[in-house]
């Protein structure tokens, strides 16, 4: 169905970050918002993406923000970095989705939903760290990679899952000894996203708890957040609710806190 050669080819084909993006991120890392905004404006696609994303209802700004420097100013360094990474990831998403019932808009909404709720969690945990804040941007890479690898095998996957409740992550692991979160890590490395991002994403699989206590806690929150978001009707309808296994035991100890932060009653 899927071979390690196909996976290697897929990873090789992932383009490096465009120059304008690299410059934008470099200036954001140096907390120089005005230079970052100038760099971002060099890339029309990035500017357009940022305007659409930041003005979507989930960000909740009362006025339309169309100016990139103003946008970065309102968002601040960590969240600006987060939306730039979201843009980078959206470059990997397919024009037409086959495995999941998604389109550009729903995928952007998913990115926004995750980013905004991740921010709530970090505020609750009192964490202000740009790398940790932007780590959530990489999580939807699991969905993009699943789409890329499994879209030509939808029927096979469905037949297999009709006799065995196996998730896509396990199928990949059993066939190629590599899983979706490993592939996310490879993408993160290719894009110089920082070690902590890779570590949090790996922990968020719920399958490889981190030995670093702080990273592990963030992994738990991210895992639970993913399934909180993927239980929303539009994502259930898109077929995202069960593409990977929810590791309920992994997150049980933070559930009460999580339900307070998300106002679940």
């Amino acid at each position: 169905m899927i071979t390690i050669e196909q996976i290697n080819t897929y990873i090789t084909k992932i383009p490096p970050a465009p120059d304008a993006l690299k410059k934008t991120l470099l200036h954001l890392n140096n907390e120089n918002l005005s230079r970052a905004a100038s760099a971002a404006q060099e890339d029309n696609a990035l500017s357009s993406y940022l305007k659409t994303l930041v003005n979507s209802p989930i960000y909740g700004f009362s006025n339309v923000i169309s100016d990139i420097p103003q946008m970065f100013g309102v968002l601040g360094v960590p969240r600006s970095q987060q939306v730039v990474y979201n843009y980078m990831l959206s470059l990997l998403s397919p024009d037409k989705w086959k495995l999941f019932k998604l389109n550009k808009t729903t995928f952007h909404n998913l990115q926004s939903d995750l980013s905004v709720h991740w921010q709530k969690i970090l505020t609750h945990l009192k964490i202000i760290d740009p790398h940790i804040q932007s780590s959530i941007s990489l999580l939807p890479a699991t969905i993009i990679v699943s789409e890329a690898l499994f879209c030509e095998n939808i029927e096979d996957v469905n037949q297999l899952r009709s006799v065995n409740p196996i998730d896509l992550n396990s199928i990949l692991q059993r066939l190629c000894n590599v899983n979706l979160f490993d592939l996310c890590q490879m993408i993160a490395e290719k894009w110089d996203m920082g070690v902590s991002t890779s570590q949090i994403i790996q922990a968020s699989s719920g399958l490889k708890p981190s030995e670093n206590k702080n990273i592990n806690i963030l992994g738990k929150w991210m895992h639970l957040l993913l399934f909180y978001i993927l239980s929303k009707p539009k994502y259930v309808e898109a077929g995202l609710n069960d593409f990977i296994d929810f590791q309920i035991d992994y997150v049980e100890d933070i559930y009460d806190d999580f339900s307070k932060v998300m106002d679940i009653s």
Partner: peptide
């Protein structure tokens, strides 16, 4: 056997 996962709060009932 059905295997729902995550949060079952009714908003996604029809899709489930």
């Amino acid at each position: 056997i059905f295997f729902p996962q995550g949060f079952l709060d009714g908003t996604a009932a029809e899709e489930l």
